[in-house]
Amino acid sequence: MSQNVLEVEGLNLAYKTVRGDLLAVKDVSFSLKPGESLGIVGESGCGKSSTAYALMKMLPPNTSMFTGKIMIDGENIMDLDESELRRRIRWKKIAMVFQGAMNSLNPVIKVGFQVAEPLIVHENVPKNEALEKAKELFKLVGLPQDFINRYPHELSGGMKQRVVIAMSLVLNPKILILDEPTSALDVMIQAQIMNMLKDLRKTLNISIIFITHDIALASDLCDKIAVMYGGQIMELGSSEQVLLDPKHPYSAKLIGSIPTLRSDKKLEFIPGAPPDLVNPPPGCRFNPRCPHRFDPCDKEEPPLYILDGGRQVKCFLYKMKGLGE
């Protein structure tokens, strides 16, 4: 039995805004084995990016509540202070490729050096050794090794994204979080990058958390999929389970609204808009838009039910199964 490299339990994150407290992440729990990849899928405002930042404990100054357990390699990082996190955890155990990171590369420093920097600064590795490692990483992400001497403006979007991914791997983290890594890229470049990520998984046996609004893209990499809505995980299960037999009405509708090239179906949509996280609707957050809404849905929040095969669904429809949380 392999130890979970990541265990998240009851994560809550709220921000202070003009209108009141915004509960961006509510009671989120999941786990990740070594070499496993989890896709966190959801639409705008569902809390997926906030969850990612929470895992790195990179919280904005207006955070008003942050509770729960985040166990990385058996250690609860919620107890650690900032300097500990910086020293041992961030970038070393868990690293993140931010949304739009490829545009935040320093334009006046060669990309090879930017990748090598964490080694030189934090690990006191001598410069040429660090650059050698950078070369290795470039090879890993599919870039020619002599690119270490190029500047960001000399690279295309896809190449820059590979550089950023290389940067995140430089200290050999066990967990890599990717937040919409391909949303700014064309379809074909996206496919190239996804192929590269599949390679990385095999070669490094690294655990990946892949955050995206495109569930089809998640299917391209992820073993497990968590569907988020209104700051909560509505469904969590293996890719096979979630994609082929979605249990939560939202997951089902989301999958149904994706136009498919290779099969025919009636394209679906969900009328309405995502909930206001400052004043969420009472009961289940999806209930105003849910086609299967019935009596308890707007009165209390459904708990997370566990179905056969370890699948979790947050929906009263499954109360009938008689299983508790």
């Binding site: 064309d186 074909m188 496919a191 599949k198 569930i215 089809a216 299917s219 391209d220 990499l221 890719s239």
Partner: peptide
Amino acid sequence: ITAVPDPDPKNRFIYRKVISGE
């Protein structure tokens, strides 16, 4: 067309045929 994934759990086991370059 090949580059665009449909939501299919088998996708993660196959390398999508991709044209190189930009």
